[in-house]
Design a protein around this nucleic acid. Sequence first.
DNA 1: CAGTATCCAAATTGATACTG
DNA 2: CAGTATCAATTTGGATACTG
Lengths: 124, 124
Amino acid sequence: MDMPSELKPRRRPGGRTGCAVEATLSVIGGVWKPVLMFHLLKGKLRFNALCRLTPNATARMITLQLRELEADGIVLRTVYPEVPPKVEYELTPLGQSLKPVLLAMRTWGAAYQEQLGKTIEPCA
Amino acid sequence: MDMPSELKPRRRPGGRTGCAVEATLSVIGGVWKPVLMFHLLKGKLRFNALCRLTPNATARMITLQLRELEADGIVLRTVYPEVPPKVEYELTPLGQSLKPVLLAMRTWGAAYQEQLGKTIEPCA
DNA sequence: CAGTATCCAAATTGATACTG
DNA sequence: CAGTATCAATTTGGATACTG
């Protein structure tokens, strides 16, 4: 099993000699991480819900990114001993603290899409 | 010659069906892009200066990322017909508009590094 | 439901050497 | 100075099939 990460000069560059921006990227620097986190800003979500909200990513990618966010203390994963299985993801306080970054991204992206004359999905 | 991009579900996912956050990532979603842009917030910089400010990235990577930012209208590249050659990079108005995102990243990263008890470099 | 395992193709990057 | 070319080594991602 592989453990990708992407958008990271090979895991934790910012933790060694990088600047503050690099440090942030070492945590949210995965293609899907900001998107996943953004969706989680609204509250707990189940795995399938996240998949539906992120149609451009495969379940595999979502799982991988979620696992890394969990390892970094950004996301909390809760498994409910039920049948069928139920797993919920939510942002930890540390994850919530990234809200300003996420919102800034959403704001810019929305303006960019509009200026681009191609508002695809509200998404939020 | 290759034209990588990274941190992008294979070039422009956000432009097709993604949400606002994805749109933003399609532009700044490269490991080094935010870092490079952050440095350029302070003003024009020459290629070597950017290299020095981003020691964790190779010149090749910096060139590649800069070319993409240029293609996306985020960065302006100016070549001065001198000997030795002089090339300056600076943010375009569109690039400047990403300032809030970059600053939010720097703020969070700084706090994260400190909480991590390992403030490496001020960087800004 | 919520993943995980595998296989494998494709993309990305570092290192190194070279140029206008 | 400011890159670019090339090659090799990884890393990454998608597809598909399977499980508790």
